[in-house]
Amino acid sequence: MADDYSEYRQALATGMRVEIGIPLSGGGVFRDWGVISESEEDRLLVQISRDVLPANVRVDIGFILDVSILIGKESYTCSGIVTGKLGGRVLEIRLFGRFTLSERRQFFRTDMVLRVRYDIVEDSSRKEVEMDWEVRKEREQMKSQGYDDFVIAAQMARFKREKPIDWQELLRAQLNLGGGGICLRMPSTARTDQLVNLELHLPHDPPRLVHAVGQVIHVKPPQVQRDGSNRYDVGMQFLFLDERDRDLVFKQISTVQITHLRKIADKREVEVGETPRVPLTRRQILVRALWVLVFLVLAYALARYLISYSQAPPESEIQKTYEQSIRKYRHLDRQP
């Protein structure tokens, strides 16, 4: 397990100054400096510089943030998840992923499997796509807030009737999800800058449905599947995504990362609980061989005794008395 954290050990040390990036609910990132008070494997205790964070900045257990360091003149960033709070200024952070150049890093991203519906826009303008997204987004948010169908219908009447969408459904879509975009593995390809309507089914409690519109940034070469079909990894940035829905995306990322960390912790406990078998020394082997030899000799002697006993068993006291009486009787019978 030690090799898994060699990069962290080389990059981080107790007393080192790091930059902490905390996501804001309204978008953007709040950055503050902190000092590492303890560093062990992927676990950090960081004391932030401020006594009190601004009112719009909130950090709770399960929040994902970034940890940045300077190596030479370059800034490198790694993702982390808050696993504990010790007072108001000390955060316990578990790192995941690798340190990468900050400008190349995609912020808050992780792999997962979700139910997704998508539609590649072919003949609608950007304005039309945005208006239709507004309708779907408002309807879903009213449903999640508990409004009945009559109120929802009355509210939707003020919007222009949305165009019908030919949704394509992926029940278990492989994707990489972040606060700013998504890389979705699709059975069909798309063109750069093309718009894609998206429905993300997030398995929260209760389940939530996020409506978004992505703009294609890149498409990787197709991957041939076992059945001969192709799959395309289509990278998109979120062109239209409500900030409340972005919070739901962050929550889903946090849930996936916490589950991942829990699996790692369980694996560590199993490895710690396993006692490695130490090979026997020559002396131990010789002693065990002698004990085996003694056991075999005793077993042989016992077997010989049982065999001889079964062939000529010793006379009991009753048998001896009986035979003596018979001999005495025969002796008296022979006398005149």
Rank of each mutant, 00 (worst) to 15 (best):
M1K: 01
E7D: 12
R9H: 13
A11N: 08
A11R: 15
R17V: 11
V18D: 05
V18N: 08
I22D: 07
L24F: 10
S25I: 02
S25G: 07
G28T: 01
I36W: 12
I36L: 13
E41K: 06
L44G: 13
L45P: 03
L45H: 15
D51N: 10
V52E: 11
N56Q: 08
D60L: 09
D60T: 11
I61T: 15
L65N: 11
D66K: 00
E74H: 09
T77S: 09
S79I: 00
T83K: 13
R89F: 06
I93V: 15
L95V: 07
L95I: 05
G97N: 08
G97Y: 14
G97S: 08
R98H: 15
L101P: 00
R105E: 00
F107K: 12
T110R: 10
M112K: 01
V116C: 12
Y118N: 09
D119F: 15
D119H: 15
M131F: 10
D132E: 02
E134G: 01
V135P: 01
E138V: 10
E138C: 00
R139G: 01
Q141L: 11
M142K: 13
K143Y: 13
S144V: 01
Q145L: 10
Y147V: 01
Y147L: 15
Y147G: 00
V151I: 14
R158Y: 13
K160E: 07
K160G: 03
E162A: 14
E162W: 07
P164F: 10
L177A: 07
G178L: 02
G179Q: 06
G181R: 07
G181D: 10
M186D: 03
M186K: 03
P187I: 05
A190P: 09
Q194I: 08
N197G: 05
E199T: 06
H201G: 00
P203T: 02
P203L: 01
P206M: 01
L209C: 06
L209E: 04
V210A: 08
H211S: 11
V213S: 09
Q215M: 12
H218L: 02
S229P: 01
M236E: 09
D242H: 15
D242W: 13
R244E: 06
R246V: 06
L248Y: 13
V249R: 10
F250C: 03
K251Q: 15
K251Y: 14
S254K: 03
T255R: 08
Q257F: 03
Q257Y: 07
R262E: 12
R262A: 05
R262H: 12
K263D: 03
I264S: 04
I264R: 13
D266H: 06
G273P: 01
Q284Y: 02
R288V: 00
A289V: 00
L290M: 09
W291M: 06
V294C: 10
L296A: 13
V297R: 06
V297C: 09
V297L: 14
Y300L: 02
L302I: 04
R304G: 04
Y305Q: 00
L306D: 02
I307E: 07
Y309T: 00
I318Q: 06
I318H: 04
K320M: 07
S325V: 06
Y329C: 02
H331E: 14
Q335G: 01
